[in-house]
Nucleic acid binder design. Structure first.
Lengths: 213, 213
DNA sequence: GTCTATAGGTCGATAGAC
DNA sequence: GTCTATCGACCTATAGAC
């Protein structure tokens, strides 16, 4: 065989999906959410556009996958590892600081997700993608909390789904604010304030008191 | 003269600006941020496209004005009026609940702002618009806090700009989360959690303690 | 590559408010 | 009369279709 001949690049489906998601991310980063099309993604990844349809089935599914992977990656980078199991508030606090670090490192990815989410909401065909991604992310956070609860035998004095939704909102707000302001000096302080919302929520702590003395 | 002849519709500049902003909002709501152009706005408002440049000077200024007016309107609707002057945390709490109400009422406007902001961040020419709007909004919140401080003689134990930024982030996160989830049942509970971040921040309260008893 | 559509922005002139 | 908001034509750059 001629080594110059363009040999087909066979990849397992999962691997192919990953590369296509990389390409989709790059397309949106370069040309905006409105430029995201199956053809552009295929072109960027160097495959026939038919491959994208094969791998994802529809644009909605592609968008969903982009958002889902980014969200999952962020969650893994943030919630994993050496969090103090004995203190929920502290774990949340450290997680939010971890998010701030991740945000600075992968700014472009967060920007893409933000734009893609907002744009998807406006497009009837894609609305479901944004919706189901947020729902999945909140469920994933709730599952993390449940795991913590199971491991420690402790519970929260606020319903887990509510805490999870508020955590997701805090993360989103932090990201949106920082993407626009780029205020690095204030970032950690803002994290501290937001993290306070989750202090004193372990059952038996009787809620948060602020002494008036 | 023919009564059918298109008589020019002279408006004071301010009034014309308002109508053009209405048109811009409608364009984005109908066709997405990528469809926002001076010509589309002009067409929607029934004027020559030259008028838009005349009224705003540039597209960047137009986008800035759209974002600024929406943000100002929300701030006025939320922070004004019968807030308890004697309790900062409670004022914030009620404001966030007010925001939730405003969000439900003007959902479309919030959606437009969200999409426009995200899209502006991706476009080099418009990045400044998103940036300066967020900065202005944080400054406006800080100014509200300063007014409260001046009126009551009380201060916060956290720097005002940090609290203002965190408040903006909370608002943004709440909006983004709700726009995607539309979870009306949880909305007020999530507000409660987020509002907790601002409890116990008056100087002399010694910060927030959570009893471990 | 060419061709077209559309974008943002500018110019000189004019209609109407004052 | 002056001043301001308006208009249609125009320029240039760019993105996409072919």
């Amino acid at each position: 065989m001629n080594p110059e001949s363009p040999t087909r690049d066979y990849l397992p489906l999962e691997e192919r999906r990953e590369r296509l998601l990389d390409a989709a991310l790059a397309v949106v980063a370069d040309a905006g959410a409105s430029a995201l099309s199956l053809r552009r993604v295929a072109e960027r990844a160097g495959v026939a556009h038919r491959v994208v349809t094969y791998a994802f089935g529809s644009k909605q599914a592609l968008v969903e996958a982009v958002l889902h992977r980014a969200s999952q990656r962020a969650l893994d980078a943030v919630w994993t590892g050496d969090l103090p199991l004995d203190d929920f508030a502290e774990a949340v606090r450290l997680s939010l600081h971890g998010l701030a670090r991740d945000l600075r490192r992968h700014e472009s990815e967060y920007r893409v997700v933000s734009e893609l989410t907002a744009s998807a909401r406006a497009h009837p065909d894609l609305r479901g993608a944004a919706q189901s991604e947020i729902a999945a992310s909140v469920r994933a956070i709730a599952a993390s909390i449940e795991r913590w609860s199971a491991a420690t035998g402790r519970t929260l004095n606020t319903p887990t789904p509510v805490v999870a939704a508020a955590l997701r909102a805090s993360v989103d707000g932090l990201v949106e604010w920082w993407l626009s302001s780029r205020d690095d000096r204030a970032l950690d302080d803002v994290v501290e304030v937001l993290a306070f919302a989750f202090a004193g929520r372990e059952a038996g702590q009787g809620g948060v008191h602020h002494s008036t003395s």
